[in-house]
Design a protein around this nucleic acid. Structure first.
Length: 401
DNA sequence: AGTCCACAGGAAGGGCAGGCGA
DNA sequence: TCGCCTGCCCTTCCTGTGGACT
């Protein structure tokens, strides 16, 4: 692009009509005035939490539902309403919301306790103290509260799978030691079978009440999307069938409203970038590809260097071989480490990295037995040429391959 | 039926960086 | 500054295992 073209592109951008009138309305963080198809869940959660307005401690509640079914949105909505009533009625109520999956924030017991203490007004260093000291600080911070404290732990399944359920046991028993404060816990999980991982005592005290968020079907998704699109896009930006297409695709993805919103927003951005007259179905297809590509590439980018090298080897080997084994990858990997002058990891560790890449959905690795010839992982890659190229390029740039 | 391969994957612990309190 | 504590990444050591081969 020549420099004058660049200039005209920018001026066109300013002068050009945008498809968007409020892009925020097309993101998951945006809270609509009326939340569709979740009346039952809103009422359930509200009636469980309502006793806190009279100073009683509400039952602990467990919320289940897969990704994009509105768990976080509804929890925030109900707790915000509750807080505003509590404020106007002068009731002591404190709501703490924490996402346990947030890397480096609340993904270990220490960090969770530190974060909880911080939200209750105590400052705890991000590392350095013994865990029981952090627990004490959190406990003291709780004691200084008056009335009810509701702790909402989002993506609690991720944390329990990582560090066990002992912290939950402590949390659910904390009321026994508190005098004037009452604590209630909302556990939010994406994994419906998650309680199987937990001790039965924790399970029973945490699941005093349960609320299930079923996936949205295509019709519900369409209504949600239509509502958001009216707020997010200017009139007549969308060609017929676009909303239906987005909702149908998202319904296939376990009724994921987040995916539906991402699809329509990205489709809008792509259409705008290609200077189209309107947003059409082809933009949705492109959006689908882009979202998947970005997800994979971003996942890989955030991996440690050895994980990148291992993936590079796997991509390289699967170029002309269908299935490869852990041992093959490891011997090639050792060669690559020498080539780029990086100290190599052990096979045990590389095996772990392969398993992590599999869990992240970047590669497919399944354990098979070849009888006499041992047991190994059969590794294959199901990525488009485009994505493979991007990942390889990223690794080559980083290590000067 | 027994052997044996090529790993998988659990457990324990070392070493490091970041941070605290004395 | 030093001792101590944490999370994190990694190694070492180990036991387990599905099925082809003998």
């Amino acid at each position: 692009m020549s420099q004058s073209n660049l200039k005209s592109m920018f001026t066109d951008y300013i002068d050009g009509d945008s498809f968007f009138k409020n892009k925020d309305a097309l993101t998951t963080n945006w809270k609509p005035d009326n939340i569709l198809h979740r009346d039952q869940q809103i009422n359930d959660l509200a009636s469980i939490l309502a006793p806190s307005l009279r100073g009683d401690d509400p039952s602990n509640v467990f919320i289940y539902g897969s990704v994009g079914t509105g768990k976080t949105l509804i929890t925030k909505h109900v707790t915000e309403e509750l807080t505003s009533v509590a404020n106007s009625e002068d009731v002591d109520l404190n709501i703490v919301y924490i996402n346990c999956k947030m890397k480096k924030v609340a993904d270990t017991e220490y960090r969770l306790l530190a974060k909880l203490a911080e939200q209750l007004g105590d400052d705890v260093p991000s590392t350095g103290l013994p865990t029981d000291e952090v627990y004490n600080r959190f406990f003291e911070a709780l004691q200084e509260q008056e009335g009810v404290v509701v702790i909402a732990l989002d993506e609690i399944d991720a944390l329990v799978k990582k560090v066990g359920d002992e912290f939950l046991y402590n949390l659910t028993r904390i009321n026994d030691d508190l005098q004037k404060t009452k604590v209630s816990i909302i556990g939010i999980s994406n994994d419906l079978n998650f309680t199987e991982y937990m001790d039965s005592r924790v399970k029973s005290s945490l699941s005093e009440e349960e609320i299930i968020f079923p996936p949205y079907n295509a019709i519900e998704l369409r209504e949600i999307l239509k509502d958001r699109a009216e707020k997010g896009f200017v009139e007549e930006a969308l060609k017929g069938g676009v909303i239906s297409k987005c909702s149908a695709l998202a319904a296939q993805e376990h009724g994921d409203a987040r995916r539906a919103l991402d699809l329509i927003r990205v489709a809008g951005e792509l259409a705008e970038r290609s200077s189209s007259e309107e947003i059409a179905k082809k933009h949705v297809d492109k959006a689908q590809e882009k979202i998947e590509r970005d997800r994979i590439v971003e996942t890989v980018r955030s991996q440690p260097k050895h994980s990148k090298l291992v993936l590079y080897i796997i991509l390289d080997m699967t170029d002309d071989q269908d299935d490869i084994a852990t041992g093959d990858v490891y011997s090639e990997y050792k060669g690559l480490c020498e080539e780029v002058d990086v100290s190599k990891l052990t096979q045990r560790r590389v095996s772990g990295l392969i398993s992590e890449l599999d869990m992240l959905g970047v590669i497919n690795a399944k354990v098979i037995s070849k009888g006499r010839y041992g047991r190994t992982r059969q590794i294959s890659v199901d990525l488009s040429e485009d994505i493979r190229g991007q990942i390889k390029e990223m690794v080559e740039d980083k290590f000067y391959i």
